[in-house]
Write a protein that binds this DNA or RNA. Structure first.
Length: 370
RNA sequence: GGUUGGGUUGUAGAGUGGUCAAAUACAUCAGACUGUAAAUCUGACGCCUCCGGCUUCGAUGGUUCGAAUCCAUCCCCAACCA
């Protein structure tokens, strides 16, 4: 596996959190890392240049969505996802496992795979683990995800167990189907909120983890404390020397809490979605810039922020753009929100380096309210 | 001066005797958003001591058990004719 390597550079003596380097064919990812989501081969509202400027090292895209449109063959023909979307840094494609969860009404699962009724056309497609690998091979991301079954919080033990076992079997099938050495397959730990299932899943799925493993099925409606508890439970059980990716988690407080619990990589649609809906991330928590109280506030979202939006524009102006339905509002807030998270991970790294991540968390959460 | 058509809750605009505090849209205000069916969704939007009460549909007066809706007068607005 010379195309991929994970090196731990420092472990925080206070928290156990790590700083690492994840080497991929498209460059080194410094962890811990927040990964912006670009489901349809674009981080909504942002150009690759914007993303680089705000410190994005890797972005996500999505197997299910790109399979439906434009089709993985088109992307392959275009020269692969990197070339297609003009992003020369690492890319991770999610497997479509999350769509098993989010499009629950439009799919049927059996042990062989999932039948989706396309949310675009209604046309039915059957996705197996092997098909998922074929699609992801065609897309050509650096990191590809095993096809899994993500269950919602509140699922019964039986449901969780069934999904968990299926996810393990599918991980094996993905492992056997994945031949491209330029791509690394991350298997996914499931098990819902049941610790025995989580442990079993971790142990079984680890067999298929060469240089990276993911925790899925969290932040699916449960209380944060429940998620933290699961992460605590898993913390010292992961395979050695590989990055741990917590899927779909990314509010600032969760970011810190998860990194403290040994997580290296995270992604989340939150910063870009709430940006499009008029909300900014700040040191104090959410700021709904759309609110009338900002109509004559001629200061930046955050005075000390180095992002393009804060350097050049005021809250009053951005509120005006939101109010006028101008797309620049979404762009500026997306830039700010992603920058907020990349900057937060930089501060976290700094704290890890100085063995004071727990202190940093205390300081951060003193001001930050969600 | 005359004719015709109008004046409805921020705006536009339904409603032409009871089921009307009054459709709908827009605007406004607030909230939600965590591997993106989300530039989306939810709620509020006359006033109050708000599971009930009060005051509204240009104004005033009337008809009626009951009026935004019918009648009279007046005041405005628009178009056209002099």
């Amino acid at each position: 596996m010379e195309n991929f390597e994970f090196r731990i550079k420092h472990v925080c003596k206070q928290s156990g959190a790590r700083i690492g380097e994840f080497i991929t064919p498209h460059g080194i990812i410094e962890t811990p890392v927040f990964m912006p989501v670009g489901t349809q081969a674009t981080v909504k509202g942002l150009r690759p240049e914007d993303l680089k400027e705000i410190g994005a090292q890797i972005i996500l895209s999505n197997t299910y969505h790109l399979f439906l449109r434009p089709g993985d063959k088109i992307v392959k023909e275009a020269g692969g996802l990197h070339k297609f979307m003009n992003w020369d840094k690492p890319i991770l494609t999610d497997s479509g496992g999350f769509q098993v969860f989010s499009l629950a009404d439009l799919r049927k699962i059996n042990d062989d795979g999932v039948e989706f009724s396309s949310h675009l056309s209604g046309e039915r497609f059957f996705i197996t683990p092997e098909k998922c690998m074929e699609i992801q091979n065609n897309l050509g991301a650096d990191i590809i995800m095993a096809f899994d079954e993500c269950t919602k919080a509140g699922s019964s033990y039986e449901e969780a167990k069934e999904a968990c076992e299926r996810t393990t079997k599918w991980a094996e099938r993905c492992y056997n189907a994945q031949k491209n050495e330029k791509q690394i397959l991350f298997p996914i730990i499931q098990g819902n909120m049941f610790k025995d299932l989580r442990e079993k899943s971790l142990n079984e799925v680890s067999k298929y983890a060469k240089c990276g493993i993911a925790v899925g099925g969290l932040s699916v409606g449960e209380e944060k404390e429940v998620m933290y508890d699961i992460l605590d439970f898993l913390k010292d059980k992961y395979p050695e020397n590989m990055p741990r990716y917590l899927m779909g988690v990314g509010s600032p407080d969760c970011l810190i809490e998860s990194i403290i619990r040994g997580i290296d990589m995270m992604d989340c649609v939150l910063p870009t979605r709430i940006a499009r809906n008029g909300t900014a991330l700040t040191q104090k928590g959410k700021m709904i810039v759309r609110n009338a109280k900002f109509k004559d506030d001629f200061t930046p979202i955050e005075d000390d922020c180095d992002c393009y939006a804060c350097k050049h524009f005021t809250k009053a102006y951005i509120r005006h753009l939101i109010n006028a339905d101008e797309m620049l509002a979404a762009e500026l807030l997306s830039i700010h929100n992603i920058r907020f998270l990349t900057k937060l991970t930089e501060k976290i790294k700094e704290a890890i380096l100085h063995d004071r991540l727990l202190d940093f968390k205390e300081e951060f959460l003193k001001e930050f309210k969600w």
